[in-house]
Amino acid sequence: MKPRVGIPRALLYYNYYPMWKEFFERLGAEIVLSELTNKKILDDGVNCSVDDACLPIKLFHGHVIDLKDRVDFLFIPRLISVQRSEYICPKFCGLPDMVVSLVNDLPTVIDVTVNMRNNNSSLRKAVLDAGRYITGDVVRIYSAYKSSLQKLHEFQRKMEEGLTPLEAMHGGKPSSFKEGIKIGLIGHPYNIYDNYASMDIIRKIRGRGIGIITQDMIRESEIDRIAKTFPKAMFWSFGKKIMAASEYLIDEKKVEGIIYMVAFGCGLDALVGDLVERRVRKKGVPFCLITIDEHTGEAGIDTRVEAFLDMLEWRNASKCW
């Protein structure tokens, strides 16, 4: 029987899933995903985590609980840094340790460490370490890694064409209909793309014929170009992307307004959100900060988003007079 590797649909699932899937499948494993985020996953996560943890970390624990009894391995990499001189978040540095402490009766956890802060060789080692849980065949691991990298690049290219991660994973097509106005939707990927956590915000915005551009739809080279102009290097990879994206979207006049979705209790968003808001407002672009947490009511968010979109449409219409 094929070994079953469980991947929680949370946190960096939205950034790396196609790569992880290709890798483990090439090694002969079967991928098992947790359910899409739902009420039970949320409740389980909230119950087992510490109160003050951010929503995404709570959700991750919920996804682990959903998966753990159905798999032989749980893939919980320790992603310290995926780019030179940068980090993701302190909580990612200790993610497997938190899970192991808080959730009982876990299957074997594949907790390889990726730390590319000082050099890239750590990735190679992480890949090898991860592969060894499934097979001893090093050549096979490397070739699986190569083709998984290719999948990752394809995936990223599709997002740059305007697809959300879920659309890119499921072979969606870039929307061809002419949208009236566009807005920038920025935030940690696991906040904006998890339809349950985000209260389905993407569908709701598009449903009004308004297009969205997220930070992941902007070319890496543009992000890097803008990030270089910050007074101090932004050492959080997602913080950098979010800050640079908001600047890019405004300066290049790509959007009419910006919605920044943050998770309650997120340490990064608390600071990055403040910096972004100050910059965006100074440039006179409408800005809306939406905070989500386990108690957020969908109605409240809908009202705020709708009011914001109404305002944008109204502004846009009055421009054409």
Binding site: C89, P90, K91, C93, G94
Partner: peptide
Amino acid sequence: PFTCMPEIVAQSILPRVSHDHDIPAMTLV
């Protein structure tokens, strides 16, 4: 402090350490 990222990681793990080493531990946010 409320929302302190590194210490939330530690807080999540502390109960297990406290239990294994039989030393009472309390967290104040």
